[in-house]
Simulated assay, not measured.
Amino acid sequence: MVGWAIALHGGAGVDPNLPTERQEQAKQLLARCLNLGISALRSSASAIDVVELVVRELETDPIFNSGCGSALTENGTVEMEASIMDGPGRRCGAVSGVTTVKNPVSLARLVMDKSPHSYLAFTGAEKFAQQMGVEREDNDYFITDDNIGMLKLAKEANSIVFDYRIPTNRYESCGVEMESPIKMNGLPIEVYAPETVGCVVVDGEGRCAAATSTGGLMNKRTGRIGDSPLIGAGTYACDLCGVSCTGEGEAIIRATLAREVAAVMEYKGLALQAAVDFVIKERLDDGKAGLIAVSKKGEVAYGFNCVGMFRGCATEDGFMEVGIWE
């Protein structure tokens, strides 16, 4: 028997000027969802059931970018995506382009459990959702006023909101050198972009699981698919570990970031935190991202190379942390 461990995230790359009230709201949500997962683990729930349970809860709150509160496409619509993976047997399920499903992570679970496939997208995913009788909502449920305003700003800046690089260029005003206004990919940094959610768990039997859910990028092209539903990129679980990633999807895809954590553990013999540190440093190139991970030994780890990551983690021996910054 090993001790259980759990970690969850609400996205990487955080505005350092994010109002304290918003920070506290995010941390309270993370703590509530973390405690939900802890209670389930104490009741001997399996890792796969716990990651689904926690991500479902994150999807129902508009603070982060999944389910209710999802980012909007260039057309002002939602195209949600999610994936889930069960370490034993490496079973997995994923969906993309979902527009009506209240909890995309549970639809991904149904793809894994109730279909012969691993991945369904767009009209096929919606038809499967209807056949499975999952709870569905009208567009108004998913779209928040904050995100409508965010999309307007993104369109004005002709920008996609996802880039967490903070430039340090200086400019001259009235003959005085000044710091330039900090921007994220062309948008003022005061604008807060909600982010992807995810959860990883190892249960008391040493079984690992991972799940990730997102609305994608604000002002993204319709049909764009990010890392979150891609097994091995945004989500991965095996007999060694469970991993969920967040950040610049295109960079995470190129790095096959989640699978890379498991690979360096398996082939380089690295411990969990060392594996996380290695892939964040060596595999992202110029990309900005973060990830959470657990191992079959009951360890928990996280890492990021951007300005903070919304996260929470806990282990059976009593350790618990909820944080945003380094």
Rank of each mutant, 00 (worst) to 15 (best):
A233T: 01
L187N: 04
E172R: 09
I189K: 10
K268G: 00
A193P: 04
P167E: 11
G249N: 01
S228G: 09
V55D: 09
G298F: 12
A301L: 05
T99I: 14
G124Q: 03
G69P: 09
G89N: 07
D239M: 13
L284G: 03
N169Y: 13
D86H: 08
T235M: 08
M309H: 10
D317R: 00
A157D: 07
C208W: 05
V294H: 08
G287Q: 03
R221I: 10
R221P: 01
K102H: 08
N158L: 11
V200M: 03
V55Y: 05
V111Y: 14
E81M: 00
K220L: 06
D146C: 02
T77G: 04
R170K: 15
R109H: 12
G216M: 02
R221M: 14
D146Y: 08
T100E: 11
Y192N: 03
N65V: 01
I252H: 07
D285C: 02
V14L: 05
V307N: 15
M265W: 04
G312F: 13
V14A: 01
G216V: 10
G312V: 13
A12H: 07
K27I: 14
G247T: 07
A154M: 04
R22L: 06
F64I: 06
A71P: 04
I84G: 10
V55W: 10
F319P: 02
D113Q: 15
